[in-house]
Amino acid sequence: MLTPSSPHAVGNQSVQQVMFSVWAATLPGFAALIWFFGWGYLINAVLAVATALVAEAIILRLRRRPVWFFLGDGSALLTAWLLALALPPLAPWWIPVIGTLAAIVFAKHLYGGLGNNPFNPAMVGYAVLLISFPVEMTTRWGIPAALATEAHSLLDSARVIFAGLRVDPALVDGMTMATPLDVYKNDIATLDAAELRAEPLFSAGWRVYGWEWVSGLYLLGGLYLLWRRIITWHIPVAVLGSLTLLALLFSWNPDLRVPVDLHLLGGATMLGAFFIATDPVSAATSNRGKLVFGAGIGILIYVIRTWGNYPDAVAFAVLLMNFAAPLIDHYTRPRVYGEGRS
């Protein structure tokens, strides 16, 4: 006869709660995305989540795992959600669908499902899309609402997403653009910083430019997760710290390179630092390991953005550091109580 082992008391955290809290923490940023860039994000999210749940259910069935037990943990939902937040809002409908499938089927279940994936599934999905469909992934970002010539409805977004260029190229042109990071990086070759800052995208200030608001709200959500002790400070601080440091060192001249404020607030940095890099499954585990892991991501983000071909680099930076996580873990084991202190 066997009785369950101690402890008999359990804390009040559960996987579902962790996933739900992370999801909830992205909501302010998500709201801001819709506010500034239109309904495309909502459509993305619905497409991605629906694809994720269906794919997850089918795979669980194929793997003969209890479907509801695992579907209920919310991990597939969160993966799809984070991917949807990272995708260009006005990309064709099959972009979120393919990305989510890649994330759930390839990055997650082919490696053994929840807890066994060495790479961040959402970022695998993102990387697959960026490599396979570079045009869709770089040109179909939303124009901030304040800069658009006319207001666009949910229906317009849906038309762009589901019908696309073939049906209404003018509408697509009127609603999409590249990201500010991309624009700055490309245009600084021909213009100087003062001229660039005079462009509508950069001159309209805090309230309209949008990206800063979204990043700020992601930061807020991240602080909430820290307060709830769902994540620790190590990874976000290391990511933001190393990125800031490098940007200050190498981007001190805004006439040459993207300045530090754009690095921190103009792209997916905040989303990456608080919500993507902190994915525990694929990150390093010890506190020191997390610092190394985060610093590596920060450095790679800067390096790829500055000297690489891609305008944003969170996905590649995270994936590259995922490779390194087991090694980092191996070399950053915490000191065990009673082991000789140096």
Binding site: R64, R65, P66, V67, F69, F70
Partner: peptide, 11 residues
Amino acid sequence: DYKLIATDAGR
């Protein structure tokens, strides 16, 4: 525990 759930009976 999840192995004891019905859909897992076969494995």
